[in-house]
């Protein structure tokens, strides 16, 4: 499989007043076209730093991110990001429809086509009737659906999701996980899904990349060989699911102390 998204030797250090903090040390991985890959790691593993570098929102200190053969220097046009903080990523002064339409206007999509895309996107996340509402009139889960609809309407080749369901309740989370799988299968986009939740990563992904604690490196690139059709109850009670979960879990436990012994922690 040729990589659609290539991360080569990515490094990010932050300059504080009196010291340098090494957040991401050396990350190299590729995500194939149409793949759904999850990234897990202990908290403080630089997951968000990594994602922001991939999204072109943060300039790496070294290495590069290549999307469809082109190095990323700013937010690429064929990429959309869904953030964890749904309440802060939707424009509160715009209705749901206007929120979804705005990036399309920016992309100079014709008015008629914009209308179609907005309607389709709302339909696909199950919010066909909510277009005229303001985001803050909706529940948290619905707001995150709007953010997903906005990303989907943008027709990106890569969808980045930064712990998108960390702030919703368990029931809603399960629904949104299935929605993510469904949209991914139907639309054939490439999805890079960052989470701290091991079960979520195993349930969703075809691959799970396990990150170490900062300074971050990749500890393992695990293939999730579960059947393509996944279902909350059946999949989660599959013995193979339990094995994979246990495996990733032990890796994440190791990840927390990955740099200990090798050198003093910064």
């Amino acid at each position: 499989m040729t990589a659609l998204l290539d991360v080569c030797g990515l490094r990010k250090t932050y300059q504080a007043a009196d010291r340098t903090v090494e957040a991401v040390r050396d990350l190299t991985f590729g995500i194939g076209d149409g793949e759904l890959a999850c990234i897990v790691g202990p908290s403080g593993a630089g997951k968000t730093t990594l994602l922001k570098c991939v999204a072109g929102l943060l300039a790496p200190s070294g290495g590069e991110v290549v999307l469809e053969g082109r190095p990323v220097h700013g937010p690429p046009e064929n990429m959309a990001v869904v953030f964890q903080e749904y309440g802060r990523s939707l424009f509160p002064w715009m209705t749901v429809e206007q929120n979804i339409e705005l990036p399309l206007k920016q992309k100079k999509v014709a008015k008629r086509r914009r209308g179609e895309l907005v309607a389709e996107a709302l339909e696909s996340v199950g919010l066909a009737d909510a277009g005229g509402a303001y985001p803050w009139q909706l529940s948290g889960g619905m707001q995150q659906r709007v953010a997903i609809a906005r990303a989907v309407a943008y027709e990106p080749s890569v969808l980045l999701m930064d712990e998108p369901f960390a702030a919703v309740d368990a029931q809603t989370r399960a629904e949104l996980e299935d929605l993510t799988r469904e949209l991914w299968q139907r639309l054939g986009m490439t999805v890079l899904f960052v989470t701290h939740d091991i079960e979520e990563a195993v349930y969703l992904g075809q691959r799970v990349l396990v990150l170490s604690a900062a300074p971050t490196v990749i500890m393992e690139d695990a293939v999730i060989d579960l059947p393509a059709e996944r279902e909350q109850l059946a999949t989660r009670s599959d013995p193979r699911f339990a094995e994979l979960r246990a495996h990733i879990y032990s890796l994440v436990q190791q990840a927390k102390t990955y740099h200990d012994g090798a050198e003093p922690r910064s």
Partner: peptide, 21 residues
């Protein structure tokens, strides 16, 4: 809000559009 600003940037809102929207 920086999340909102990041969102706007990731969807290519710059310059005059950023100011207005």
């Amino acid at each position: 809000d920086d999340v909102l600003a990041d969102t706007a940037r990731s969807y290519g809102l710059t310059g005059a559009a950023r100011l207005r929207r």
